[in-house]
Amino acid sequence: MTRIVLVTAAVLVDADRRILLAQRPAGRSLAGLWEFPGGKIEAGESPETALIRELDEELGITVREPCLAPLTFASHAYPNFHLLMPVYICRRWEGTPVAREHAALAWVPRKRLGEYPMPPADLPLIPVIQDQV
Score class of each variant (00 low, 15 high):
Q130R: 13
L21V: 05
G27C: 01
V7M: 12
A121C: 06
M85H: 03
W93R: 07
I129H: 03
L51S: 03
V5E: 15
L71I: 04
R17Y: 07
H76P: 04
A15I: 00
T2P: 14
R92A: 14
P109E: 06
T8A: 12
A103C: 05
G44M: 08
E42M: 11
T96S: 11
I52C: 10
R92T: 15
A31W: 03
W93V: 06
P97W: 04
A10M: 10
S46L: 11
A26Q: 11
D14S: 12
A9V: 01
L6E: 15
I19A: 06
S29Q: 12
M118L: 09
L105E: 05
P119N: 14
E101L: 15
V133A: 04
I129A: 03
D16R: 10
A9S: 15
A74H: 06
V5F: 13
P97K: 07
G95T: 07
A50I: 09
V5W: 14
E42D: 13
Q23G: 02
T96Q: 11
A104M: 04
R110T: 07
P127W: 07
T49H: 14
E45R: 05
N80I: 02
E54F: 07
A77L: 10
L125A: 05
K40N: 05
P79M: 02
L20I: 05
L59N: 09
D16L: 07
V63G: 03
P47S: 02
E94K: 15
I126C: 00
A22V: 09
R24M: 11
P79S: 06
T2I: 14
A43D: 10
P86Y: 01
V133E: 02
P37F: 08
L33S: 11
L6N: 13
A50K: 08
E54Y: 08
T8C: 12
M85A: 13
R110K: 13
G95C: 09
G39N: 06
L59Y: 10
I129C: 02
P127K: 09
L68S: 09
A74G: 15
A10T: 11
E42F: 10
M1N: 11
R28M: 13
R112I: 00
F36C: 04
Q132D: 07
R91M: 03
G32Y: 05
E94I: 15
R92V: 14
A99R: 10
H76A: 03
S75T: 01
L6A: 11
R91T: 14
T62A: 14
L55N: 04
F73D: 14
T2L: 11
P120I: 09
T72H: 10
Y78L: 01
A69N: 08
T8V: 15
Q132S: 13
V7A: 14
V108E: 03
L123C: 08
P124S: 07
G95N: 08
E42V: 09
D16W: 01
T96N: 05
H102Y: 15
L55H: 01
P79N: 02
L84T: 09
